[in-house]
């Protein structure tokens, strides 16, 4: 089942509203204004705001896919990425490094200042769509692409420590894989 964005957005000029299909009203706001708001807010507020956006995207994906736990990788990327694209957050990508799940955003209008918000969106989407509490750890940003490691709390803490120590993100993924094998 492919993602069909037709009639995903409804512009009601009489009421002056923008609605998404199977969802509530939306606001079309400038991205720099939203970014300025996120930069002025606290980290917890930004995370909470992002998770709410991700929850909305996961809910919309579930409404399209039905049973998401049986969906293959491509289908999840297609539909979840479609919902996030309708929000204008960028293009979603998926990378599998061994057993590590890495999700990426490309061409996000928020730029580097919106990385925390994007990670929070992924956390909310995973929690709403698959019922898992995950932590999105920012691995790196290269140009318009930013990569997030989707890991548990323990793995996210180790990865964050290694990244803070200056370990390359590739080595971080390798260490995570080896640590799982040793354990």
């Amino acid at each position: 089942m492919n993602f069909d964005p037709s009639y995903a957005l409804e512009f009601d000029f009489g009421r002056g509203q923008v609605r998404m299909a199977n969802a509530g009203e939306r606001l079309v706001v400038p991205s720099d204004a939203l970014l300025a708001l996120c930069q002025g807010a606290s980290e917890d507020a930004v995370r909470d705001f992002g998770r709410r956006l991700g929850t909305e995207a996961g809910r919309a994906m579930l409404g399209r896919l039905g049973e998401a736990w049986q969906a293959p990788l491509e289908t999840v990327v297609e539909h979840l990425g479609g919902e996030l694209a309708l929000m204008g957050l960028g293009s979603l990508g998926l990378e599998r490094w061994g057993q590590a799940l890495v999700l990426s955003f490309s061409y996000s209008p928020l730029g580097q200042g919106g990385d925390l918000l994007l990670g929070s969106v992924l956390e909310g989407a995973m929690q709403r769509a698959f019922g898992r509490d995950v932590v999105a750890v920012k691995l790196m940003r290269e140009g318009d692409q930013v990569r997030f490691l989707v890991a548990g709390f323990d793995g996210a803490r180790k990865a964050s420590d290694w990244l803070y120590q200056g370990v390359p993100w590739g080595d971080v993924l390798t260490r995570l894989t080896n640590s799982r094998g040793q354990s």
């Binding site: 969906a71 698959f130 548990g152 793995g155 894989t177």
Partner: peptide, 12 residues
């Protein structure tokens, strides 16, 4: 996708 997600959550 859920299998991959669970495997990734087990890392570390």
């Amino acid at each position: 996708f859920l299998q991959l997600l669970d495997a990734s959550l087990d890392l570390g």
